[in-house]
Amino acid sequence: MSEARTAVLGEIRRSLGRPEVDREREAAAAERIAAHPRGLIPARTDLGQEGRVRLFIAMAEQVAATVARVGSMADVPAAVADYLANLNLPPHLKVAPDPLLDAIDWSARPLLEVARGGAAPEDEVGVAAAFAGVAETGTLMLASGPGAPTRLNFLPDTHVVVLRTAGIVGPYEEAWDRLRAMGAMPRTVNMITGPSRTGDIEQQIQLGAHGPRRLHIVLVDTPDA
């Protein structure tokens, strides 16, 4: 295929009237990438941290996600159990082996049946952790990794995501900075804004097309927030 590569790049350069090797432009592009300047950022996220948390909740609820805000990680089992009970959903959790979630003592709610690991087709409720929440649009950011199977975000009918308020940022750009600080780019970064939906039949919105039918966010207040 390298013949095609040479031809495509050659035609691009011919069309642009550029020479084959152009160290100057290469350096300029590399510099722009290294600096990754921010573009215009909407003013709606110019808020203090608590304002951003509230904006995040409002935006997530606008797209049919539900949010339970709790005081500490110890409250997560109750929040999850109550959510499932209210909707008469089976209390069978598949929990991502994430260090944050591993620290949860699920035995506080004995009716919850908890398994740890990746998603299997028969799993009904997936529990995952987000590394950030973007207030601008109520968007959760999840990165794949040894403790974060991507399938868990898509196969189960019910998706529960645990997010700490310290993870809430204003615009997407702040989430990218956090991602860069975490190290090399993971295989998958999922930006999730509400449950799965489709408008393909007569432009009427239906939730739960192929991914989760419902998205529940357990937002945990963190002292450092």
């Binding site: 935006m59 797209v63 649009t137 968007t139 970064v189 999922n190 930006m191 999730i192 804004t193 991914g211």
Partner: peptide, 8 residues
Amino acid sequence: EFSAYTTV
């Protein structure tokens, strides 16, 4: 405002 899934 944003699509449900934007995946990188």
